[in-house]
Design a binder for these strands. Structure first.
Lengths: 136, 136, 136, 136
DNA sequence: GTGGTCTAGACCACA
DNA sequence: GTGGTCTAGACCACG
């Protein structure tokens, strides 16, 4: 069971936080392709959000091709099929990695420590994915 | 000489784009500690922004402890002295690294390719820093 | 209900006067943690200030960690959780106490009278805090 | 020998910092009534300030009645003669003490610790005054 | 010349 | 309704 956390103080739009967390859940394996997402109304209640806000997040995810909405049935996680070329994918990733590198420099975390931390997180994600594939 | 680019269509606040780029310039060695940043008015003209927008970016950078501003004299890049504990620094970095990892998974970039890309960016930053320390 | 007073002739920046007064209200118990601050627009009207000036004060307070602002909802007083070490807190306080001591000497107020005055103010704050915790 | 420190990053006007520090020196006994202040030009050089800035500080001090300028001879610390009533003096002091109390509350320093710190600073100032009256 | 403050008025995103 | 961003233009203090 995945649970989402909304940070009202982050300054980031609430619906975008939901989008990120659902993408995160999908990436980490907590949500598997084909699985249904939580229904809008119960989720809105649980997170103490307006239904419109949750709906907006789902709309955004559908336009990003992450989920699929079937009227009357619900929303489902799509098989992820990257629609970008290898080059485009690397461009997007490079931007995010650079962001982290800039922060690392600012925090005076040296390259070796940075790479170690990246390796640690990669391992952490791998283990979560492995678990969710086995059990449940 | 560093030059900044503003993307008016990105949806991201203009002043935050400036903040990111200046932090990037500092991390990559294009701006060195103690060096003066471009003056607010000329920079605003060059980027076709309002004076206040540039000033807001500089204010934000100062409150982040990245630059130091001396009224009547100008703004200068501070010696970066991280005031965070090792633990706090790792927490901040972990968040940014996870962000990139989620994106990687979304783009179906596997761990091996991801790590290779990270290594590549680390090397790239290192070389830029090395260059700016030698000559110019 | 707290009310703020702006002195346009003081020479001190208007937005900083607001910052000080809100911090004062928080310290004296007139504003309690979690409580909403006055909305920017109505407050600006009441004080006959521009919206941006009030917003600047609130932005400053947020970056100081005194308040929390949730776009679309409002600004709220944070639970105060001092992130400084005991040593750092004393250093900050010492600076302000010395300031008062210098003034006392300048005004030829002797130590005994000074200490009495400090005690009086401490008691005054304590009583205000006590009141606001009981009733209303 | 008193030495002054200018903090360019404080945001406070440089000449006002000088004013405060000279008042501080007078309060702590480092400067005694009737003593000459440093000449403008050497002091400006030592602090790496513009001569105008130092002159402005001295002008301000003279208008505050702290020093006395005798053309051709220099500037001298006046006998301090408080021109305020007891009530006025307490009003001024109360404002500064409250300032410190607000900060203390913000930093979650309790009354007992606050009073102890005040006592400590009072003692510290007293000892400095005593020393400068004896020796030199 | 520098940065800092303030006003006025506009548009946007979010709840 | 809320706060956030941006522009335009004015005045001030400091060096």
């Amino acid at each position: 069971m995945t649970t989402f956390r909304i940070d009202f103080k982050s300054g980031k739009a609430v619906y975008l936080q939901l989008v990120d967390q659902i993408r995160y859940a999908a990436a980490s394996g907590a949500l598997r392709p084909g699985e249904p997402l939580p229904s809008i109304r119960p989720l809105a209640e649980e997170l103490r959000l307006n239904r419109n806000t949750v709906a907006k997040a789902y709309t955004e995810l559908e336009s990003q091709g992450v989920i699929e909405t079937i009227p009357g049935k619900g929303c489902f996680l799509k098989e992820n099929q990257s629609q970008f070329t290898k080059q485009a994918r690397h461009a997007i990733l490079t931007k995010e990695i650079d962001q982290a590198l800039v922060t690392a420099h600012q925090l005076q975390v040296d390259n070796k420590a940075f790479l170690a931390l990246v390796q640690e997180r990669v391992d952490y994600f791998s283990s979560k994915n492995a678990n969710s594939k086995e059990g449940k």
